[in-house]
C-alpha cells in the first residue's frame, strides 16, 4: 500500500519503520529537514521510503507527497488539532479511504473517531507495547 505519514517525530518515525518492515511504500512529509534523523537512512537511500520537506497539513504538501495515489494517510505531528485538520483534508478534499490521526487528548480522540478518522493514542501505544512485552516475557 501507499502510505503517507505527516510528521517524523517519535511516533511518525516508528510508524514509518514498522509499516516499511511490512513492505508498504511510505512517503514521510516533514517540514523540518533536521527532524528526520529517526527515519531509517538505508530505506531512504534504497527508495523504499521517500522523505519530502514540506508542510504536510497543506493541500500543496499533500499533493507533492502523492496524496492522489495514497491508500492510507496518517497525521502524526505533535499537535492534535493539526493532525485533525490534515486528516480531514485528506479525507474530505482528497478522498483518501483510510485516514488516521495521532491524538493525545481524549475528547479530541472521541471527536475524530466520530468523524470517521481512526486515532492513534500516544499513551495507548506505549501501554500496548508494555503489555505485549510483559506477555512475551511471561
Amino acid at each position: 500500500m501507499n502510505v503517507i505519514i505527516v510528521g517524523a517525530g517519535n511516533i511518525g518515525s516508528s510508524l514509518t519503520s514498522k509499516l516499511s518492515d511490512l513492505g508498504h511504500r511510505i512517503t514521510v512529509i516533514e517540514r523540518n529537514s533536521k527532524a528526520v534523523s529517526l527515519v531509517p537512512r538505508g530505506r531512504v537511500d534504497s527508495g523504499a521510503i521517500t522523505v519530502i520537506h514540506r508542510d504536510g497539513s497543506t493541500g500543496a504538501g499533500m499533493l507533492e507527497g502523492g496524496i492522489s495515489d495514497a491508500d492510507v494517510f496518517i497525521a502524526a505531528t505533535g499537535k492534535d488539532s493539526l493532525n485533525g485538520l490534515a486528516a480531514q483534508r485528506a479525507k474530505t478534499i482528497f478522498g483518501v479511504e483510510k485516514v488516521m490521526a495521532v491524538v493525545a487528548d481524549d475528547d479530541t480522540r472521541i471527536l475524530y473517531e466520530s468523524l470517521g478518522i481512526s486515532t492513534i493514542n500516544k499513551a495507548t501505544l506505549a501501554s500496548d507495547r508494555l503489555v505485549s512485552v510483559l506477555i512475551e516475557e511471561a
Binding site: 493541500g59 499537535k79 488539532s81 485533525g84 485538520l85 475528547d107 479530541t108 471527536l111
Partner: peptide, 30 residues
C-alpha cells in the same frame, strides 16, 4: 491557528450542541 479554530468549533458542536459556530480561516484553502 486554523487547526485550533476548526477543532474548537467541532468540539463545541459535539460536546455542547452549540447552535452556531463561526471560525476565521487564515489560509484560503481552509
Amino acid at each position: 491557528s486554523d487547526a485550533d479554530n476548526l477543532a474548537t468549533c467541532q468540539l463545541a458542536r459535539t460536546n455542547f450542541d452549540i447552535a452556531r459556530t463561526i471560525a476565521i480561516a487564515h489560509s484560503p484553502e481552509n
